[in-house]
Design a protein around this nucleic acid. Structure first.
Lengths: 121, 121
DNA sequence: CAACTGTTTGCTTTTGACTATAACACTGCA
DNA sequence: TGCAGTGTTATAGTCAAAAGCAAACAGTTG
C-alpha cells in the first residue's frame, strides 16, 4: 500500500493523502481488511508532518472508508466498495468539468441524464 | 451581462468572477462579440478590489474566452461557444464510466448530484 | 514491560488570497 | 487635441488557512 503526494500541487497535502488511498481502493490495489501504513511512517517517508497525514486519514474515517483506533494502524472497512468508489470518482471528475464549463447544477444533471439515456439504447 | 459572487463561499473571489462569466456564456446569456463590464465597475459594484476582478478576467483570457487590451473593455472571443460542447462531451464520458462501473441510471445521477453539491463549496 | 499506534493541545511558520495605493500606457469620444 | 476611461504593472500590507513543530496522553500489540 503506497501513498504518494505531489508537493507542487495546489491541492492540500492532507487531501492528497486521502485521495491517494481512495485511488488505491478504487483500483483494487487495496481491499477491505488491509491496513494503512502508520501515520508517523507515512509522514517520515513523504517528508511531511504527522498531523497532515492524520488529517488525511480522518477524512477517510469521516467517509467511512477506514477505521481508526489509537494503538492500531488504520484498517480499511468492509463497506469500502470498489465499484461505488469508482462511480464516485467519475462523478467527481464530471462535476469538476461541468462546473468549469460554466454549467449550473441543473444543466449538468440534465446533460448527464441525456447522456445516460442515449447511451442505454 | 451580470456578474455575481458569493462572499461566503470558500471559492476564491477571482475564480467566482470567472465562473460567473463562463456561466453566462454556457447558458447563452452572453455571446461572442459582447463586452464585459469594466473591471473597475465590477469591483465597485461587488465591493471587491480591482485586482481581484482583473485576475478573474485574466483567467478567461488564458482560456481564450475573452480578449483583453488596455483602453478597451474585455470582448468575448468568437470561439467561446465551445463550452457547451465540452459539457456534452464530459457528460458522455461520465455516462460511459458509470455504466461500466455497474451503476443504474438513478445511482449515476445521484452520484453526480452529490459530487456537484460537495463541490459547490 | 517495551515499543509501537492514534489523539490531543498549543504554538509558530508559511503560503496564498485579498486589499490598498499609485503610476503607467493605450483607446474611444467629444 | 484633450480627457476620461480602460487594462497593466508594481509595491506593500492584512488576514486566514495550511502546514509544520513539539510535547504529552492513552490506547494496542507482542
Amino acid at each position: 500500500m503506497l501513498i504518494t503526494i505531489d508537493p507542487a500541487s495546489p491541492q492540500p497535502l492532507a487531501d492528497q493523502v486521502a485521495a491517494s488511498v481512495r485511488a488505491a481502493l478504487a483500483s483494487g490495489l487495496a481491499a477491505p481488511g488491509d491496513r494503512l501504513p502508520s501515520a508517523r511512517n507515512v509522514a517520515a517517508t513523504l517528508g511531511i508532518n504527522l498531523h497532515t497525514v492524520l488529517r488525511g486519514y480522518q477524512q477517510l474515517r469521516d467517509e467511512g472508508l477506514v477505521e481508526l483506533r489509537r494503538g492500531r494502524t488504520a484498517v480499511i472497512t468492509e463497506g469500502a466498495d470498489r465499484l461505488r468508489l469508482r462511480l464516485a470518482e467519475a462523478a467527481e471528475e464530471y462535476a469538476r468539468a461541468a462546473l468549469h464549463a460554466g454549467a449550473t447544477e441543473e444543466e449538468a444533471l440534465a446533460a448527464a441524464r441525456q447522456a445516460l439515456l442515449t447511451m442505454r439504447d
